[in-house]
Amino acid sequence: MVNESWDLIDEFDARYRIAGESVVRHIEVNTTGSDYGASSYTTRDQADRLASLLALAPGRTLLDVGSGAGWPGIYLARTTGCDVFLTDLPPEGLRQAHRRMVDEKVRGVVVAAAGAELPLCDEALDAATSSDVLC
């Protein structure tokens, strides 16, 4: 089981390493409307639905579990003004998420952590989301 988890992390890491290639970016934009190197099926319309459901706004804090390279967490922070806390395990996804967060001047934190072991205090955040990672 542990080996399977590491294989999965490696598989996603390999995907993130090529996500910036123009052909991969073109496919992503034309499939979901994201340009974050996303590996989920969440479209831009669906991300906007999350913003509404979660009542995201400036001053509120969002947790995106299994955030990968930042879709939709960083997008939601940019479009709503909320702060974002991103967690995932593949290192390349986290590196890209951090870079994107800085580029987009989004307020937030990127942390390497499994979804079941979140390094956060109790009752710390205002909303939580994830895209195609929950079990």
Partner: peptide, 9 residues
């Protein structure tokens, strides 16, 4: 980690 009445989606 969520506050009371906080949404999850």
């Amino acid at each position: 980690v969520l506050k009371k009445d906080a949404p999850l989606a």
